[in-house]
C-alpha cells in the first residue's frame, strides 16, 4: 500500500473571468501521508480553498483544472487520478463522501434545513452502502454519540435549526466520518465558531483521527489552530506553496520570510510589547502576480535582479523534510535571525 493517501503533483487551477485568466492555484505539489494531519495555511485569496475543492472536483465554471495530477491511493492498492476523471464519471461519486469527505466552514449552509438530522446522515449510508434502514439508523445514532452529541436518539429526529452552532458542526463532522473516509478535508471548520466551541471541535477532530487512523487535510488561516492539531504544514501564498514541513519546525523555526512574517505578526510572539511586527503592503491581486518570487514586493530580503524577475523560485530542500521556495534560501537563517533581533529591540 502506498504510504500516501493523496499526492498532488503540479496542480494548476485557473478561473477564466472577463478580466482575464486568474491563476488561483499554480504548480502546487504536496502529499498527505496515511494517518497524518496536514494543514494548508494562508491568507484569504491564496488558493487554499480552491486546492481543497479541486480534490473533490467541486470547482465550478468559470474555474478549471488546467494541469497536474491529483492521485488518490486506495487501500486496495489501486490509484485514481482525480484530476483526469470526467465530470460525470461514476468513480467521482464513489470518491465523494465515501473515500474523501469534506467539512465546510458554515455548518448552517452545509445542512439541509428541510430534512431532519437523521435523514441527512442516513442518506450518506444509503448512497454508499447496501444497508437496511434499521442498520443505517443504528450506525448514525452511534456516530452522533461518538461526536459528543447528548441524547443522539432525540437529535436524530430534530431539524438543524433546533441545534446550536457547535452541535451543527458536530453533525457535519458525523456526516463526514460516517463512511469512514480515508481522507477528511476540513475547510475552515471552526472559523464561524466561538473559541470555546472551536476548542471542542478541534479536540474532537483530533481524537477521531487518532482513533480511526484516517488522514486529515485542514484548510485554515489560523496559525494557532495549526499549532494545536497539525502534524504537517504547507504554507500558501498567491497560489503557490512557499514552505512545507512538520509543524514543530515551521512554527518554531519558520524559514520562508512570509511564514516568518505571518507568525511574528501574531500578538504575543515578539518581545516588543508596543508594536507588532507586520508584513508591509497587502496581498496583490491574482490577476497581477508579481514576476519572479511572488512575495518579493513585501519581502525585506528581496534582492534586485534576483528575486524580482524571471520565474518563481524553485523548491530548496532545507533538511528534515522541510522545503522552502526562496531565492535567498542559502543564507536565510542568518537574515531572519537578524530581523528577529531588530524587531525585539
Amino acid at each position: 500500500m502506498n504510504p500516501n493517501v493523496l499526492e498532488i503533483k503540479n496542480l494548476r487551477v485557473s478561473f477564466f473571468t472577463d478580466e482575464g485568466e486568474t491563476r488561483a492555484v499554480n504548480d502546487v505539489c504536496f502529499e498527505i501521508p496515511r494517518g497524518k494531519f496536514l494543514a494548508l495555511v494562508g491568507e484569504s485569496g491564496c488558493g487554499k480553498s480552491v486546492t481543497s475543492y479541486s480534490i473533490l472536483r467541486l470547482i465550478q465554471h468559470p474555474g478549471k483544472i488546467t494541469g497536474g495530477q491529483i492521485l488518490l491511493h486506495n487501500e486496495d492498492g489501486s490509484t485514481v487520478d482525480i484530476a483526469s476523471l470526467s465530470e460525470k464519471d461514476d468513480k467521482l461519486y464513489e470518491i465523494r463522501g465515501d473515500k474523501i469527505s469534506m467539512i465546510f466552514q458554515e455548518p448552517m449552509t452545509a445542512l439541509s434545513p428541510v430534512h431532519t438530522v437523521g435523514n441527512q446522515l442516513c442518506e450518506v449510508l444509503y448512497l454508499h452502502r447496501k444497508i437496511s434502514k434499521q442498520e443505517a439508523e443504528k450506525q448514525v445514532i452511534s456516530m452522533l454519540g461518538r461526536v459528543g452529541i447528548p441524547a443522539p436518539e432525540r437529535r436524530f429526529r430534530q431539524y438543524p435549526f433546533e441545534l446550536s452552532g457547535g452541535m451543527r458542526q458536530r453533525v457535519v463532522i458525523a456526516m463526514a466520518m460516517l463512511s469512514r473516509p480515508q481522507l477528511l478535508i476540513a475547510d475552515e471548520p471552526t472559523t464561524a465558531l466561538d473559541v470555546t466551541i472551536q476548542a471542542q471541535v478541534l479536540a474532537l477532530m483530533k481524537s477521531l483521527q487518532e482513533e480511526t487512523g484516517n488522514s486529515v487535510l485542514l484548510i485554515t488561516h489560523d496559525l494557532a489552530v495549526v499549532a494545536q492539531v497539525a502534524d504537517l504544514v504547507a504554507v500558501m501564498y498567491l497560489g503557490r506553496i512557499v514552505e512545507q514541513g512538520n509543524v514543530v519546525d515551521i512554527i518554531k523555526d519558520p524559514l520562508h520570510p512570509y511564514t516568518f512574517g505571518l507568525l511574528r505578526s501574531l500578538p504575543g510572539m515578539s518581545k516588543n510589547k508596543d508594536r507588532l511586527p507586520s508584513i508591509p503592503g497587502s496581498v496583490p491581486s491574482l490577476l497581477d502576480i508579481p514576476p519572479g518570487c511572488p512575495f518579493h514586493p513585501r519581502c525585506d530580503f528581496a534582492q534586485k535582479g534576483l528575486c524580482d524577475c524571471g520565474e518563481p523560485p524553485p523548491e530548496t530542500d532545507m533538511g528534515n523534510g522541510r522545503m522552502i521556495c526562496c531565492y535567498r534560501a542559502a543564507g536565510i537563517r542568518q537574515l531572519l535571525e537578524e530581523k528577529r533581533r531588530m524587531e525585539d529591540a
Partner: peptide, 14 residues
C-alpha cells in the same frame, strides 16, 4: 484555556 496557543509543543485543548 480554550484559546489556541501558537505553540505545537504545548497542546492544551480542553
Amino acid at each position: 484555556a480554550s484559546a489556541p496557543i501558537p505553540d505545537p509543543t504545548m497542546r492544551t485543548l480542553p
